[in-house]
Design a protein around this nucleic acid. Sequence first.
DNA 1: TGTACATCAGTGAACGCGCGTTCACTGATGTAC
DNA 2: TGTACATCAGTGAACGCGCGTTCACTGATGTAC
Lengths: 219, 219
Amino acid sequence: MIHMSWHKRGGRGERSYHHGNLKEDLVRAALELIAEKGPFGFTFADAARWAGVSPAAPYRHYSDRDALMADVAKRGFELFEQALLRAWDDGRPDPLTAFERLGSAYLEFARKEPAYYSAMFEAGIPIGANPELRQAGDRAFNVLRVAAEKIVAAAPGGKKPPALMLALHIWALSHGVASLFARGDDARRALPMSPEELLEAGVLVYLEGLGLWKPEKSR
Amino acid sequence: MIHMSWHKRGGRGERSYHHGNLKEDLVRAALELIAEKGPFGFTFADAARWAGVSPAAPYRHYSDRDALMADVAKRGFELFEQALLRAWDDGRPDPLTAFERLGSAYLEFARKEPAYYSAMFEAGIPIGANPELRQAGDRAFNVLRVAAEKIVAAAPGGKKPPALMLALHIWALSHGVASLFARGDDARRALPMSPEELLEAGVLVYLEGLGLWKPEKSR
DNA sequence: TGTACATCAGTGAACGCGCGTTCACTGATGTAC
DNA sequence: TGTACATCAGTGAACGCGCGTTCACTGATGTAC
């Protein structure tokens, strides 16, 4: 009996002395545990246990628990950016339709990825001290900013409100709706409609206020 | 030496065997500690230590740490409601002016009372399981709802958008701006303007979209 | 192709620490008479 | 006004537990020749 299984790799659950993907597994562990018990409901040792590894092993990959959380948040922003890019789809078929999709994608991310979402926005990570994290967040916001620019550029007549402001307003509105009503955990508040409907209506009213959208007459 | 000071009450820092205001002091301790280290950065024992009391003492007032947090959140909502009521001032001198004050009060609360704010919105307290907390939150939101109704009622012409929707939109926008840009801690994001300006502009654009406000010609 | 060696990524035992919680207790307060 | 007693709100010691972190170590992998 000299640990035969250790010499096999890639089998169903079989382990070698070297885990091989521990870093990835720690991230997955963190996500599972955040989803289960909130962004502060788990420890470094918990993550190690979840990954089936000794409590000292995570130190090979992260200096401490906060570094792991920051990495989770960074990866979250990267996925978020990709989700937003897919939804925006370069403004097809027209900027307004694509813009509404962007809002829905925001809510969908908050609901389907509550673990990433809370790591990104509610884990209390000081963004100022973490340039990589900040950049990942900025890139995600940038999708919104580019979309806002296109909306403004496509506007009829001489209406050219500042695109940055538009993007910030939509971000804040989406974030507010998501945080209050569309979150994937027990702190979600009840609402007499779907969060998507609420957000879409809000965005349309807002765009109408900017003169970038007109409701159809016959409604 | 038979603990003379114990027999005095109300003096500067002097203590009797019975603390007298421990419950209030525990709440204050929680607020101090949340402000310092975040909503999860302290323990029941910390709160006891801060209040200058043995670690078993808090159990006379709260069943556990979560109960203390929930009480902090509840008190936060009560203060929030009062702050909003003061800002609204029954719609004086006119509903629109008062409504803008309401938005500023939201941001001011988030900035000046980050401890209450994070207990209320970011401590992960399951609101469904806590009727008192939920009611306190509902009462705070109700201020916004009543204000929205007055705004709608005072609207010119036949424009009568649903007040509940208006209130929810403004709540979400305020909450988004506050959570992202006006929070009182290190997770605050940078912004090329003041959060107040951003929110006020957003509210005005939104109200314009509803036909409840018109920008002055000469701007 | 084989061998020696450096490097890497894990182990597991150990430590000091502080937390949550309980317990029998005790000082202070309120009340009945 | 005084006294006896019940009740309340604290004490402080104790416990088991799990965490964070370190350490010397060891199995596995990669590479030079």
